[in-house]
């Protein structure tokens, strides 16, 4: 028997790990993305590297952290960050840098300074892309946070793995179903916000 209490405490652990890594990813990614804007080489390298890293299976990333940092909560956080940072940086950078040049010319023409251009032209233009990056990162993090239970992060994954070892279906479901519900709930919320942010993109 899996008690409700067990499920709730594991869900809470999972959510802490997910939200914490999501917020850290955003905090690290944004300055890097804005920095890339003023250093084209860096931007180029990040985009290329993000594309390459995207192809590497999450399990390989999680495993490789073990020899470097051992197991536990913090190695799990690092493993997740390794996967989640690049998509956000890349999307933000692309959003900020692909602005209609005529719009930039116009902004220049009416005498906006670099900061104002960023604030009033580039940023609003980049919202949809930034948001898509964050949504993507969330889906990724929610998945890996289950896997990282394998290297001792705790959370819902722990229930699943315990269930797998003991052939205990109840435990497996107790871990899997909340994780799925979280994913779907966040997807719905994100989609709502996304639509609010980009009214002019809807037909």
């Amino acid at each position: 028997m899996v008690t409700l209490e067990t499920i709730l405490s594991h869900t809470a652990d999972h959510l802490v790990l997910v939200l914490m890594t999501l917020i850290i990813s955003i905090c690290i990614s944004m300055p890097l993305a804005f920095g890339s804007l003023y250093n084209k080489r860096f931007g180029y390298v990040v985009t290329k590297f993000a594309n390459l890293a995207q192809a590497v299976p999450s399990f390989a990333v999680v495993a490789i952290v073990v020899p470097l940092m051992g197991i536990g909560f913090y190695p799990a956080v690092v493993a997740i960050l390794l996967r989640a940072l690049l998509p956000i940086i890349k999307n933000t950078y692309i959003g900020l840098s692909t602005v209609d040049p005529s719009m930039l010319d116009y902004a220049d023409g009416i005498g906006l300074n670099e900061w104002q251009i960023l604030r009033y032209v580039r940023l609003p233009n980049a919202y949809p892309a930034i948001f898509a990056g964050i949504k993507f990162a969330f889906i990724l993090i929610n998945s890996i946070a289950i896997l990282t239970a394998y290297i001792g992060s705790g959370g819902l994954g722990e229930l699943i793995f315990q269930g797998l070892v003991a052939f205990n279906n109840e435990k497996i479901l107790a871990g899997a179903i909340p994780a799925i519900l979280i994913a779907i709930a966040f997807d719905i919320i994100f989609t709502r916000i996304e639509k609010k942010l980009t009214p002019h993109y809807r037909k």
Partner: peptide, 25 residues
């Protein structure tokens, strides 16, 4: 990868992990 992690064999993890990543790339 699992064998490596469970037995805590660092070389196994590294070789299998890098090879998996490389193959995917």
């Amino acid at each position: 990868l699992i064998a490596g992690i469970q037995l805590y064999k660092i070389n196994t993890i590294l070789v299998a992990g890098l090879w998996t990543g490389l193959l995917a790339v």
